[in-house]
């Protein structure tokens, strides 16, 4: 009961502290708000790039073209050889007839040219479509498949895929680095802003010490005040994340630049991002206060 009363009073005092020292609190809140907005943008960017990399990785397929001379036994033999290659996830046989059908469906021009071809005339080859586990080692798998007798050509968008993935991984890493750096910088900025707030309240701390407040008694109201500052500072970034991202998603119809780049669906993405922002704001505010008040506790 006593603890509940103390916590209740601390929360009340924290709000009082925020409003009674409004100009300095406002400085801390603005500092948290601005950095959390940048953190939010970095997070949205980072997660979308990550998501896009995953989509690309999932879509990348090695197409192994089979010699048209190969009979059914040969095709079976090739399948057995592909199945034992390291890093192969899935493989699927796609006959030249199936490919021809797909091509004819996709374009009227193809349709008009191909409809008169007989099986013998059809130059399209049977294929194995192979998916790999680790996209970074796709070249090794392609090289192995190429060695198999009866395979004429192997294609997977070599060069382009590796470069694309490497670029996205790089952007993703930079975004994560930026988020971490921003959080650290914010923590210290807030800590310093709160330090000024607390220095202006040194008298209060001195009086608390004189009347027998323990270090915890003194620290807790300030830490809760940091929590309140963090909470208030994350309101605008959360609103921007929820409404801004949803608006952006709807405006672009879920795709960026082309149908190839898919954006992450707003729900539940904006809510998890917002929760992280609030948590970061609170923790950074509390840490800032804790660090700032520490200095004043030496007797």
């Amino acid at each position: 009961m006593k603890t509940v009363r103390i916590i209740g009073r601390n929360i009340r005092d924290a709000f009082k502290g925020v409003f009674r020292n409004f100009s300095l609190s406002f400085a801390s809140i603005s500092c948290i708000t601005i950095t959390l907005i940048v953190v939010a943008i970095s997070m949205v960017l980072s997660e979308n790039v990550n998501n896009f990399t995953l989509l690309v990785e999932r879509d990348v397929t090695i197409v192994a073209f089979i010699d048209n001379e190969a009979d059914e036994d040969k095709i079976e033999e090739i399948k057995d050889q592909i199945s034992v290659i390291d890093n192969v996830d899935k493989y699927e046989f796609k006959s030249k007839q199936a490919i021809t059908e797909e091509m004819r469906d996709s374009s009227d021009v193809f349709d008009s040219i191909m409809k008169n071809w007989t099986d013998e005339e059809n130059p399209i080859q049977n294929t194995y479509q192979v998916k790999v586990i680790d996209i970074n080692k796709i070249k090794n798998v392609a090289d192995e498949i190429k060695k198999i007798d009866g395979i004429t050509v192997v294609k997977y968008g070599e060069g382009m895929v590796e470069q694309l993935i490497a670029t996205f991984e790089f952007i993703h890493k930079i975004c994560i680095g930026a988020v971490v750096a921003l959080i650290l910088v914010t923590a210290f900025l807030i800590s310093n802003t709160i330090k000024i707030t607390i220095s202006s309240r040194q008298r209060e701390i001195g009086i608390m010490r004189l009347i027998g407040a323990s270090n915890i008694n003194i620290r807790i109201p300030f830490i809760i005040e940091g929590l309140v500052l963090g909470l208030l500072g994350s309101i605008i970034p959360v609103i921007i994340t929820i409404y801004g991202y949803t608006e952006l998603y709807n405006k672009f119809g879920g795709h960026l630049f082309s149908n190839f780049i898919k954006l992450i669906k707003p729900v539940p993405f904006v809510y998890t991002t917002s929760s992280i922002l609030v948590l970061v704001g609170i923790l950074v505010g509390m840490f800032g206060s804790w660090r700032a008040v520490k200095k004043h506790l030496k007797i």
């Binding site: 010490r209 004189l210 027998g212 323990s214």
Partner: peptide, 19 residues
């Protein structure tokens, strides 16, 4: 230092500048 509050709770202090 961390236990000074135990002493202070037994003492009242009054200053010239009221504090």
């Amino acid at each position: 230092n961390g236990k000074v509050y135990k002493l202070r709770r037994k003492i009242g202090v009054v200053f010239q500048d009221y504090k």
